[in-house]
Design a protein around this nucleic acid. Structure first.
Length: 264
DNA sequence: GCTAAATGTTGAT
DNA sequence: TCAACCTTTAGCT
């Protein structure tokens, strides 16, 4: 489930449950044994930037995690149960523990690596320090399709395949429109909408994009689990106009859009 | 029990 | 452009 909202939610929860504590750090799976050197160290704070999750320990050492496509974090109140064999990292605090499974990245980094990492990420709509003009500079100068630009973490950090499809639908922009054909006012509106959607995602801990917005009105009955407009809804009727939702592959990822609602 | 697919990224060809 | 990596689950047989 990992788009930016998931990572920010984990960072927030883990700050609450673990920050200020000395943690027991283990790797039941055995593939993060280096991390066990941090066991007993004080966790000072947690941080999310795009889809990257960081734990800052005393001594300027960070655990850096990227969930990739399948990674998951389970957090629960102690006492902890025996870990599944695939648990890469287990953190145990005073009252809570957490298991990390299936990450694409889990390592210990220093301040230099952290700053290099952040330097290659675009603005993150969930961070207070985000500057949407940086993204606009890239988009407005590019002949790439806007759908490709939005998935590029160097342009905007934290968007994944669901938010991309849904953001473009709500903006009524065809995914193949070139970046330089997107107007400044369209980008400003998209950024604003993205912040709204992703903040709602952190709060609900899931992606819901069928929120009311002046231009979109649901048609027919909306079942309770109908949380999105177009993502994975190809061959089904568009919720707004009834036209069949399309699907295509772009840069190895699936793209979903309504050819009537979204214009070139 | 097997296969495909999934909200992702990196590194080699 | 392609393969590799990481794990779980749904949907077959």
């Amino acid at each position: 489930m990992p788009e930016g909202h998931t990572i920010h939610r984990i960072a927030r929860d883990h700050r609450e449950h673990f920050a200020g504590q000395r943690l027991v750090v283990t790797s039941p799976q055995g593939r993060f044994l280096g991390g066990e050197a941090l066991s007993g160290a004080l966790l000072e704070d947690t941080e999310a930037y795009g889809k990257h999750l960081l734990y800052r320990f005393e001594g300027s050492r960070w655990i850096h995690i990227h969930l990739g496509l399948f990674g998951k974090v389970f957090t629960a109140a102690r006492p902890e149960h025996a870990p599944r064999p695939t648990v890469r990292l287990r953190l145990v605090g005073i009252n809570w523990f957490s298991d990390l499974v299936g990450p694409t990245r889990c390592g210990v980094i220093d301040p230099l690596v952290r700053s290099e990492l952040f330097a290659r990420l675009g603005p993150d709509p969930l961070r207070a320090d985000a500057d949407p003009e940086r993204a606009w500079a890239r988009i407005s100068a590019s002949r790439q399709p806007i759908a490709a630009l939005l998935m590029d973490q160097a342009v905007v950090a934290g968007i994944g395949n669901v938010y991309r499809a849904e953001l473009l639908f709500r903006a009524r922009i065809d995914p193949y429109r070139e970046g330089r054909e997107v107007s400044k006012s369209e980008w400003d509106a998209m950024w604003h909408d993205l912040r709204t959607l992703m903040r709602a995602g952190v709060k609900a801990n899931r992606i819901v994009t069928t929120l009311p917005k002046h231009r979109s009105r649901p048609i027919g009955r909306v079942r309770p689990d109908d949380a999105v407009y177009v993502y994975r809804r190809h061959r089904l009727p568009c919720r707004v106009c009834g036209t069949t939702v399309l699907m295509a592959e772009l840069n190895t990822r699936r793209l979903y859009w309504c050819p009537s609602c979204q214009s070139r």
